[in-house]
Simulated scan of single mutants.
Amino acid sequence: MINEKNKKKIGFFNYLKKKLIKTSKNISKEIFNLFKKKNNINEKLFNKLQEKLIISDVGIHTTKKIINLTKKYVKLNNLENSSQLYKYIKAEMLKILLPVEIPLNINNNKKPFIILIIGVNGVGKTTTIGKLAYYFYKKQKSVLLASGDTFRAGAHEQLFSWSKKSNSFFMYNSKKKDSSAIIFDAISKAKKEKIDILIADTSGRLHNNFLLMEELKKITRVIKKNNNMIINEIMLIIDSNIGQNSINQLKTFHDNIGITGITITKIDGTAKGGIIFSLANEFNIPIRYLCCGEKITDLYLFNAKDFINAIFTD
Rank of each mutant, 00 (worst) to 15 (best):
E4P: 01
K5C: 00
K9H: 10
I10W: 06
F12N: 05
L16G: 03
K17S: 11
K25H: 12
K25F: 13
N26M: 13
N33W: 00
N39T: 13
N39M: 10
E43Q: 12
K44L: 08
L45P: 03
F46L: 06
K48E: 15
L49C: 08
Q50N: 14
K52H: 06
I54N: 01
L69Q: 15
K72A: 08
N78S: 14
N81Y: 14
S83N: 15
I89C: 01
I89L: 14
K95G: 02
L97E: 02
L97S: 01
E101I: 04
I102A: 03
K111S: 02
I114P: 03
N121M: 10
G122V: 08
I129G: 08
I129E: 05
I129L: 12
L144W: 05
L145V: 10
T150H: 14
R152P: 08
G154E: 02
H156T: 07
K164G: 02
S166K: 06
K176E: 15
D178V: 09
S179H: 13
S180Q: 08
F184V: 05
D185P: 03
I187H: 03
S188L: 14
K189P: 01
E193R: 11
E193Q: 14
K194Q: 14
I197D: 00
I199A: 01
A200C: 15
T202M: 12
T202C: 12
L206P: 00
E214V: 07
L216E: 05
L216H: 09
R221E: 12
N227K: 10
M235S: 13
M235F: 11
I237R: 02
I237S: 04
N241A: 14
I242Y: 06
Q244V: 02
N245A: 06
Q249T: 10
L250R: 01
T252G: 00
H254G: 10
I257D: 08
G258P: 11
G261L: 07
T263M: 06
I264W: 00
T265Q: 03
D268A: 06
G273N: 02
I276C: 01
I287R: 01
K295F: 05
D298L: 07
D298T: 04
A304S: 15
A304V: 10
N309M: 05
I311L: 01
D314Q: 07
